[in-house]
Design a protein around this nucleic acid. Structure first.
Lengths: 209, 209
DNA sequence: TGCTATATCGAACGATTGATATATCACGAG
DNA sequence: CTCGTGATATATCAATCGTTCGATATAGCA
């Protein structure tokens, strides 16, 4: 750490705080979670929260920044791969799903409806959500350039993809009967079949055997 | 009205109250909306809310019951129509979309994540959501019986449909560039292409033209 | 004309909220 | 060993929360 005087636990406390907040925000919701809930959850007093993050909104922003940016960068890396556009779209969907599967609670937070963010945060949230949508639009355009895309509005297609990809946050249970990996495969197939002309759907996604 | 003593306005007040609450819950969220916000929005005192609905949760329950049941019944009517299963699934999707388009604010409320409902309400919410999912599963089964369904887990397919169908609640703007009717058509096509073997997709949905 | 039920009100309750101000603690630099 | 600084705790704030209260006004019934 750069500055002196740390009690050796700054990072741990700061991160523990985020961890607890992520958990509570994701389950109870941001508005229904109190500063005291968080302090309680980490077994410390509320002072730390104000010491490290300024105010309640600061926690939310930190969570959003940390995890939404990470998602965006993960996706961007895939989006720029030099490969067949259809396969790349499938990989993008799977990457997105894997990400939200691994960081489930964080994902539930950055997919909160924008209106429920504090007004000051909304612009930032909107921009990042827009960037992710645009990434899907870009992938679809590459496919369209090959004449392999179904007809229809590309933006609607992209929104539909986001819908299917984010919905498992609402229903998938780790302890349920389905394996997450299998769900990822099936959703990727669902997306490709819906977006591509039938003859362009890679065999591994067509789910027709 | 059955009982005496009404000041001629009970129905109007009771409904106005729900209307205001629906609007506020849908935009600010349930937890972030105070009883006083609602009273303020209808230009009356807090007492009426408790007079008519007992407590804050009572309002939420009344909204849920009124609108979620209406959606379910609308869908059930379509699900029981005697017609080609593929066409019927398309019609079901369009009915669902039209419903959430017309009752947008209500729909945003009954699609709130279940955990954010008061504990006493969760069981009721869960049951109705399950019933709607099962309706889609039933439609998919009918298609599978004809050998026209893609391979894969039917439940995952049904969840995917719900994802695509409910997502417009998050992004569609009445004053945006897209006409809602067109979006409805495109989403129905998206769903059918993703669920049916290519040769089974009705021409009107195939969007290949 | 009373009697009762409904509709509405304003004021108040105790609890909890986000936030702050002040204090104590631990430790590294000198 | 002292001193300062960052980490944590305690005490407290005004505001707002959901809820309850007693009161009043109005309507139909006897």
């Amino acid at each position: 750490m750069s500055s002196p005087g740390k009690r050796t636990t700054e990072l741990e406390t700061k991160d523990l705080l985020l961890e607890v907040a992520i958990d509570l925000f994701a389950t109870k919701g941001y508005a229904a979670t109190s500063i005291r809930d968080i302090a309680n959850g980490m077994g410390m007093s509320i002072s730390n929260i104000y010491h490290y993050y300024g105010n309640k909104e600061g926690i939310l922003l930190a969570i959003f920044e940390q995890s939404a940016v990470r998602l965006y960068e993960d996706l961007e890396r895939v989006a720029e791969l030099d490969m067949d556009p259809a396969e790349r779209l499938g990989l993008l969907v799977k990457t997105n799903l894997t990400h939200t599967g691994r960081f489930r609670n964080e994902a539930r937070i950055y997919t909160i409806e924008r209106e429920q963010y504090p007004p000051e945060a909304q612009e930032r949230v909107k921009r990042l959500q827009r960037q992710i949508l645009d990434m899907y639009v870009g992938q679809l355009r590459a496919i369209a350039a090959q004449g392999l895309l179904v007809h229809g509005d590309i933006t609607v297609l992209a929104f539909n993809i986001l819908g299917v990809v984010n919905w498992p946050l609402r229903w998938f249970r780790e302890d349920g009967p389905l394996a997450f990996d299998q769900v990822v495969e099936e959703i990727a197939g669902f997306v490709l079949r819906a977006c591509l002309r039938p003859e362009a759907v890679p065999e591994s996604y067509s789910a027709i055997i």
